[in-house]
Each structure stands twice: as C-alpha cells, then as structure tokens.
C-alpha cells in the first residue's frame, strides 16, 4: 500500500493523544477551573470503580464529561460526513450546512417536536427518526434539483440550491415555531446549535450512530477516492456508481440527522475540518476519513471551550462559534477554488 496515503500507526497515536489532551483540557477549564491533578484523580477513581464524591467530581462527571463527550462525537460525526460528501460530490464546499441537509434535519426535528410525535420508551426517538428522514429527503431533493440545473453537479449550483433550501426550511421552521407557541420555546436556542445539558444517554446514541456510519463510510474509502477524481472515471474502473452514491448519502443523512436532533444544527464543522486536513494530509480517503474523525472531535471541543470561556459568564451557543470561524474559512476556500479555475 502507498505509504503516503495510509493511516499509519504513529499518525493514529498522534490523533488519539490530541483527542485525549483536548478532552482533558475541556474538562478542566470552565466557569470553575479544576486543577489537572484533581481531574486525573476523578478519572482514576472512576476507572477503579470508586467514584469520587467531591464537588469537582460531580461537576466533571455529571456536567462537563457528558457534554465534552457529546461535543467530541458530534464534531467527529459532522466532520466525517463533510469529508464523505466532499469526496462524493467532488466539491470542497459540500457539507451538511452548505447543502441544506442540516436545515432539513432541523425542520424534521422541529416538526416532530411541534406535532408531539412520540415513540414509547425512547424520549428523543421520534425527533431523531424524523430528523434523519428529513435529512435524507432534503439531500435527495437538493441533489435532484441541482442535477436538473446542470448535469455535472457543479459547485455553485449545488450551493445555490442548498442555500435556497436552507432559507425555505428555516422559514417553515419559524412558521411552525410561531404557531406551536409555548410548547417549543427552547427551540430557538436549539436551532442555533447547543450541546449544553447533554447526557450520557445522548453520548451513547451518538457513539453508536458514529461507529456504524463511520464503518460504512470507511469501507467505501476507495470508492470515495474514485468519485473525488471523477464520477465517470469511477464508473469505468468498476464502481457501482449509483449504489455507492445511495449508500453514502443515506449514511450521511442518518448521521447528520442524529447529530442535529441532539445538538441542533452546528454549521461549517463538516466544511472546515476536512478541508484543512486535506491540505495537510492529502485527499486520499484511506487517510482523510480517520483524520477527519479525530480532527472534527478536536475542533468542536475547542469551539465549545471557546464558547464557554471567551465571554464567560455568558455562554455562546456552539453553533455561533463554528459559524463565525466557518463563514470566514468558507469565503477563503471559495475564492481560492475560483481563482484556481480561472
């Protein structure tokens, strides 16, 4: 195997260390600073089966750790989704938020909340399913509209349709919120993207979805490479183009749906992280997908940390932070790719 393009052991260790380090940092820093030694003690206690009963222990275990875990998992998920979509569509600006998939998923979630759909036994089950379904539906709609506009699925036409669809979805959402009244007041905050008050249950759901979807995408790394070079070329080297496209799109929709139903729409993570990592580690998905997985986790944990600490005690929703960073990076990428073509 090509040495330059594989995910080598040292690289894996580097990323695992980076994720663990960031996680530790995010657990320690906050409105109440917790010394590193205390934090390590809490974890040691947890591992040996004797949970610490100190104040620090309860802050870490019941507030910060579940939140940090959820943030890391959402970051990894969104970034992997962005990476897969960029490869599949041969488009460095593709991502759940630019394509309008996140908006579609939000709409689905809001709809489920407003109509009071419930699946007995699972508190967020209906919201989640509805978000996934709408994510897939909107992805399908956007891609077919873009395809009608131009058959090559050109960057600009996809993004144009994505933006229009996002506006449409958010206006429908506002409509629903207006009429639903009291029932979903918290939704306005939630649509901006927030992971405060996350629970371990949510972390487990996220983790399960991520493992499943990541495994599927990872198995299609070679196909994604072929797509990223050109879809026609992929067909001729023997890729079942239609099937692979459908598998990847469904997988991505499921993962984005789960993320959105838990954390709201957190934009630009899937755009910025894979793009920056591609510049460093190259476009080969055998290597880029795992890098995006870890890199997304690190990025979103840091964004969340910034949101919690920069204007403390005021807490910025995480989506605001990522949008701030992302919008700037988006413009830079867009200009660079335009210039590259001229």
């Amino acid at each position: 195997m090509n040495r330059r393009s594989c995910f080598s052991m040292p690289l894996r260790l580097f990323w695992i260390a980076a994720v663990c380090g960031t996680m530790l940092l995010c657990v320690c820093v906050g409105s109440v600073a917790i010394p590193l030694t205390e934090t390590l003690q809490v974890f040691r206690g947890l591992l040996s089966g004797v949970p610490s009963s100190s104040t620090f222990g309860s802050i870490i275990l019941s507030i910060r750790l579940p939140r940090v875990l959820c943030v890391a998992l959402v970051g990894a998920s969104l970034s992997v989704c962005g990476c897969a979509m960029q490869g599949l569509l041969r488009n460095p600006l593709a991502d759940g938020s630019t394509l309008g998939v996140s908006a579609g998923a939000s709409l689905g979630a809001v709809l489920a909340l407003a109509l009071g759909f419930q699946i007995p036994g699972l508190r967020y089950g209906a919201t989640m399913l509805s978000a996934m379904f709408f994510a897939f539906l909107s992805l399908l709609l956007i891609l077919s509209l873009a395809y009608l506009l131009d058959k090559t699925l050109e960057t600009t036409s996809i993004i144009l349709i994505g933006v229009i669809f996002s506006m449409f979805a958010s206006s429908v959402m506002s409509l629903i919120i207006t009429f639903a009244g009291e029932r979903i007041r918290s939704i306005t905050f939630w649509t901006m993207g927030s992971l405060s008050g996350s629970t371990y249950v949510q972390a487990i759901v996220l983790c399960a979805a991520l493992i499943l979807c990541y495994a599927i995408l990872r198995l299609h790394a070679e196909e994604l490479n072929a797509f990223a070079i050109s879809e026609e070329n992929a067909l001729h080297i023997g890729v079942n183009v239609r099937l692979v496209k459908l598998i990847v799109l469904i997988t991505v929709s499921v993962l984005i749906g789960v993320c959105v139903s838990i954390g709201g729409s957190i934009s630009f993570v899937g755009l910025v992280v894979p793009h920056m990592l591609r510049m460093i580690f190259g476009p080969n998905h055998d290597r880029l997908l795992p890098c995006s997985l870890y890199g997304g986790a690190v990025f979103l944990m840091l964004a969340d940390l910034a949101g919690r600490t920069v204007l403390s005690p005021v807490e910025l929703p995480i989506g605001v932070v990522t949008s701030l960073v992302g919008a700037i990076v988006f413009v830079v990428i867009f200009y660079r790719s335009r210039k590259g073509r001229a």
Binding site: N2, R4, S5, R90, N91, P92, N225, A228, I229, R278, G282, P283, N284, S337
Partner: peptide, 8 residues
C-alpha cells in the same frame, strides 16, 4: 479537483 497523486 483534488490533489491526488499519480500513484493514487
């Protein structure tokens, strides 16, 4: 559109 190598 991406920086794939000849070997890739």
């Amino acid at each position: 559109s991406f920086d794939y190598t000849v070997e890739d």
